[in-house]
Design a protein around this nucleic acid. Sequence first.
DNA 1: GACAATCTTGTTCGCGCTAACATAATTTCA
DNA 2: TGAAATTATGTTAGCGCGAACAAGATTGTC
Lengths: 343, 343
Amino acid sequence: MAGRNTGDAAGGRSAVRMAEVAALAGVSTMTVSRALRDPSTVTDGTMRRIRSAIDATGYVPNRIAGSLASRRSNIVGVIVPSLRNSLFAETIQGIADALGSAYDLMIANSGYSLPGEETAIRAFLAQRVCGIVLHNARHTRESTDLLREAGIPCIETGNLVSRPIDMTIGFSNREAARAMTAHLVARHYRRIGFVSLPVRENDRAAERRAGYLAALAEAGIEVDPSLVLESPPGLRGGAEALVTLMALSPRPEAAFLTGDVLAVGALLEANRRGWSVPGDIAIAGSDDNELHSQVSPPLTSLRFPRYEIGRLAGVMLLERLQGNTRAPAIVDLGFEIVERASV
Amino acid sequence: MAGRNTGDAAGGRSAVRMAEVAALAGVSTMTVSRALRDPSTVTDGTMRRIRSAIDATGYVPNRIAGSLASRRSNIVGVIVPSLRNSLFAETIQGIADALGSAYDLMIANSGYSLPGEETAIRAFLAQRVCGIVLHNARHTRESTDLLREAGIPCIETGNLVSRPIDMTIGFSNREAARAMTAHLVARHYRRIGFVSLPVRENDRAAERRAGYLAALAEAGIEVDPSLVLESPPGLRGGAEALVTLMALSPRPEAAFLTGDVLAVGALLEANRRGWSVPGDIAIAGSDDNELHSQVSPPLTSLRFPRYEIGRLAGVMLLERLQGNTRAPAIVDLGFEIVERASV
DNA sequence: GACAATCTTGTTCGCGCTAACATAATTTCA
DNA sequence: TGAAATTATGTTAGCGCGAACAAGATTGTC
């Protein structure tokens, strides 16, 4: 750990300030400041001298001071339920790609809890983020108030909200689940199991269940409560839910597992038990990804535009931050049913 | 978009300042500042008055100003190759959990490129992060210099480095690959295919290939270059690599696919083609997760302590930031071979 | 060549908070 | 009870930069 720095006290090195760059270049700090933010406001000669002064000193701008002085930050805050879940990662990558290098991303996880989300919101507001993206449509009262008061653009994703805090981008979980259920009905399945993550504190799961129920009602199929299950996330969750369904008599003819990787878990369990899919049981899933196409049989599932949601969120933030366009408050990116052999 | 704020100009609301809280509580700003950072330095009565002043005004501290004044930030920067990959998400969650709510996480992706990493490092240093975590052992010369100069704790993960910039936490990719290859050799496989992601710009993949080669050398098995493949990431990549290997004559008896989900892709391809595993071909993978245990047959694979690496990185950062403990520079968390039926 | 229009650079001040150093209020103990 | 130790609060100054305005340099125009 020795020899880490250029001569000053313990580990902390006295950062080069803009003033030193300015002095070396023979200009004022204001000229350096402008040169850095918009080179076109400065003559070529000045720019060259500033650049070489920066190189010579190893100057790294201090955005903390910059943000304080300008009362603007270049940090976008993103709150997801969990970082572990690659679904959210997809959206985050979309945001990052859209924002480019002009903005930085600050990420927090709510741990799937509303108070957790509120804590993260407070931290972000203290950090004076210039915009915020949430993956949740339900919030504590306090969270909503804080965000409204903050006066910064805020995008809710994950589930379309009818009355967003500011803007919302996503798809309707209810419509998606209804469509998939209707798809199963159209294929003459009548006894259809439905498995989701626990609906409590999870508006997406609740919406999907509502969509399932709505589709059955439309088809005039009576709901059998024993066919409606909740499952913990993970492949094993889906596997166990399928076993539960298959133990019923009469057996369901189809199962729609939505959330996380439940459907894949169920299919792999069917593989292990030798249940024919869709012969013994048809299986439909959601959140289509490469895995769905590679299992045997490949899974019919709902595809959601996760990446595109993030990308568009980034674009809309940029528009609000840079331009003055009045972005639409609600953007429905829809969903898609990917038909494969499992149904 | 109407009625968003409490009365001032377009969307921007004049943030409450500490001075207003102080005035309302009948104390100086310094007392408010102290009360917020360490309640024990203030009497109960004062604390109560400050709290109610905060509630009344809706004050949200400005950490930008705080950081500038104290020359300390509470932001930890993390750079991963890609956000989409859940491997990295695992580590990030570990960091977040260890840091708790006292620190915020800023995340950037390098896009698997060294210059991309350098850009992210510059952005983080400008943001004056208080510590930085990298998932990479190779860097541009400039990156290394910047980090050394910065004088902040820096942890490299992903692959153990012999001469870290500051600290490194991880496991030896080389040893892991060697161990798995030796495991296959011990099971009397001689003709063993090896598939990794492209080794160029990817030190982890390069190390793993080196480990594979070392194990063969130790066992006195001559290397057949046609058995050593590179593959793009994804299930299809693994599937195609397996097909390539199986087309060789003589066929390999085993295949070790390491990186991303290559092994799972290969196994699913074997399922589709009706190749018996391990009868026709044994398959071993890496980065064990639930999927590996749920496919048929379940996959033998290397387990890496991804989450624990992140958690420990967080802990070591905290120690360096808060305490004065001289943390060890190199921590090897090892790996594990999870034996299942595919070998 | 005088004047306006433009482009380029400089000066002053303050963003909102905290470090460092007072000072005032309280406690401790001989 | 009074001086020293301790605790609680206040005062001053400045973190490093950018907004706002001012002024100087350059160009264009008739």
